[in-house]
Design a protein around this nucleic acid. Structure first.
Lengths: 231, 231
DNA sequence: GTCTATACCGTGATAGAC
DNA sequence: GTCTATCACGGTATAGAC
């Protein structure tokens, strides 16, 4: 790697031009979506020549995928680790619903704490992809579903007797709430007249964990009711 | 209106070319987003000449807004009516949290029952807009927030003593889950191995209402706890 | 008032020369 | 790694036909 490929970001760390392109693309794609961004905009924002994007990533589609993949593994490894730890910490009867949801969400807090603003852009990009019927099933399905199924398994153990599909629906609701949070539209800020700050992920997770735990427990109660009445 | 402006849809009803353009644009925008659709694609799908779009709607942006506005009022009027009815039906102490959420969601069921497939496309479009940091605050804020604040008010009455911001957060979660449902990505279908059908809105609302009611009630309980411990 | 044919001109992704 | 050419496509404008 030659010196000319390196630049300094604001924390003083040297980063390659390839990374600069990824950073610029990440931010732009997260705001305007795939079709709303041109490679020229990316090259301008990254401060590199247009042709360098072609050199490093080839087609636009591949650049988009590279942006998505760069942080996917880091994110999911952190969540998997959190789940495994909460399983270890729990007794033989396994972790509670609440602690499983906590393991799913808490690792995301570093996004806000990180000095790298790219993580916030990345979350917005995940929101864009997750809501897209074009990209969602391909990219999220391929790279996030294995981890999600791991969490679903844990929830099933924590709620024995509950029908599988009910747990999947609960996850769907959780995923939707998280996605809208990631999207960072600022709508809740305005709607609430400034009472809620959509940028304060920690405040959100603090509320999401009990809120969704209550939802899941309601499923469990309902299912138990049905089992009883069916007996 | 001349005969030449009319065509027949599959239910045999005559619809104007202007409506055909709106229908085509609605479907395409809902799948590919604003930037992912060209006016030429719209004209082709609608079966009209390109210049006709310019004649009826002017700029692309204005077409997009026309598509969004066409059904917004119908949708929100139905929900407002449902809320008012549930308030009338309740005693002087006002409606329950559960019945308020029901009034928010149930009117959406006609979307699935309607013969007009455009309603499903419209919902996906709302999902796209609600998750977009570019369009969300402008269009959803302007045309949906007044209704939403009406529901928030009802929830506040149903949960006296709960801090306003907690209710806003609860709404944020509800909105996210609903948005992901609207988006119709089919991801939950695949994730669940076919157990869940994302097209079955009725099944979803049946589960959302108790799930989110439980979440809100948990907020209420928490708040009461804090009040007690603070006393 | 409704619709069509056609042209404009900037911009886009991409390929190939250097 | 970089520069430049290519060539299709995009939104929009306009003149005129029914």
């Amino acid at each position: 790697m030659s010196m000319s490929e390196l630049a300094k970001n604001r924390t003083g760390k040297k980063i390659s031009r390839k990374e600069l392109i990824l950073d610029a693309a990440e931010e732009l794609f997260s705001i305007h979506g795939y079709d709303g961004v041109t490679l020229r905009q990316v090259s301008k924002k990254a401060g590199v020549k247009l042709a360098l994007i072609d050199y490093h990533f080839g087609r636009k589609r591949d650049l988009f995928e590279s942006v998505f993949l760069r942080r996917a593994k880091i994110l999911n490894d952190a969540r998997l680790k959190a789940l495994e730890e909460c399983e270890r910490a729990a007794g033989p009867e396994g972790p509670s619903v609440e602690s499983i949801i906590e393991a799913f969400l808490r690792p995301l807090e570093f996004v806000q704490e990180s000095e790298d603003p790219g993580w916030k852009h990345y979350c917005a990009l995940v929101a864009y992809i997750n809501n897209s019927s074009v990209w969602g099933n391909v990219m999220i399905g391929k790279h996030f579903n294995p981890l999600v199924l791991r969490f679903i398994e844990a929830l099933k153990k924590a709620m024995p007797g509950v029908r599988e599909e009910e747990i999947f629906w609960g996850y769907h609701f959780l995923s939707g709430a998280l996605t809208l949070t990631f999207a960072q539209t600022g709508r809740i800020d305005e709607l609430s007249g400034g009472l809620c700050k959509s940028s304060d992920f920690q405040a959100i997770y603090n509320r999401m964990i009990p809120f969704f735990s209550a939802g899941f427990k309601d499923i469990e109660k309902d299912n138990a009711d049905k089992t009883l009445s069916g007996a």
